[in-house]
């Protein structure tokens, strides 16, 4: 439940990043998105019979909706930025004469990666499966998974010629420089987010450091894809 607060703050920044409006507006948008997410989650969870007003205490019911609402709110934000993008961007291009402005900030890129990672990893995070998968894997599997995650992340954004790709990659800066500054940092970010999610959903209790790292790596795989894809989607 306490996940919602930092997330909401993050969402407001995210919107601020997408649309060049002033800050209080972003905060309002964030709350609107969360409200939309909350209502949608409430309706959907009720429809699927997940909400049980008789057996569950109000705490549990609110908790279920509040957590689901976070994912739904990011979804709502995405829809907003996706649908609003074309008109907005044209306008902005006219204004500033360059559409690159929005994409060039390093901090912004990292933030987008973080949002993408959260968005994709939030859905499997509360389930037991991530932990169960980590029990079944051998150390060799884990090392391979780490490498695969990094390679996929790098390939996704820098090697594959794709829409929204960071096309202004300067020719002089070596591939290693880009790899270190974006992919490695991105993956490190993904690992931290995975750790945060796993801790939030109570999977770390009583676990040895080794098992926590393993769970983080498993969680990190979808998160890494989310982070990499975010720069194409958002």
């Amino acid at each position: 439940m306490f996940l919602a607060i930092p997330l909401l703050t993050g969402l407001s920044y995210f919107i601020g990043f997408e649309e060049t409006s002033y800050f209080p507006d972003d905060v309002i948008d964030a709350f609107v998105a969360y409200t939309v997410g909350f209502v949608t989650s409430g309706v959907m969870l009720y429809l699927f019979g997940v909400l049980n007003f008789v057996e569950d205490s109000p705490d549990v019911t609110i908790g279920k909706i509040a957590i689901q609402a976070v994912i739904a709110a990011i979804g709502a934000m995405l829809a907003q930025s996706q649908l609003g993008a074309s008109g907005d961007e044209e306008e902005k291009e006219k204004e500033s004469g360059s559409k690159k402005k929005r994409r060039t900030k390093y901090g912004g890129e990292l933030f987008l990666m973080a949002v993408g990672a959260l968005f994709l990893a939030m859905s499997p995070a509360p389930t037991e499966e991530i932990i169960l998968i980590s029990y079944k894997m051998s150390v060799l599997h884990f090392i391979s998974l780490v490498l695969l995650s990094i390679i996929l992340m790098h390939a996704f954004v820098y090697k594959v010629e794709f829409r929204g790709q960071e096309s202004r990659k300067p020719a002089e800066s070596s591939a290693w420089s880009v790899f270190l500054r974006y992919t490695v940092v991105g993956y490190a970010l993904v690992l931290l987010i995975s750790l945060y999610l796993i801790w939030t959903f109570g999977h770390t209790e009583g676990m040895s450091a080794e098992n926590i790292v393993k769970a983080v790596v498993v969680m990190g795989f979808p998160a890494a894809l989310g982070a990499a894809a975010s720069r194409l989607i958002l």
Partner: peptide, 9 residues
């Protein structure tokens, strides 16, 4: 950031 990230990974 790159250095911190590299150390972590």
């Amino acid at each position: 950031f790159a250095a911190v990230g590299l150390i972590l990974v």
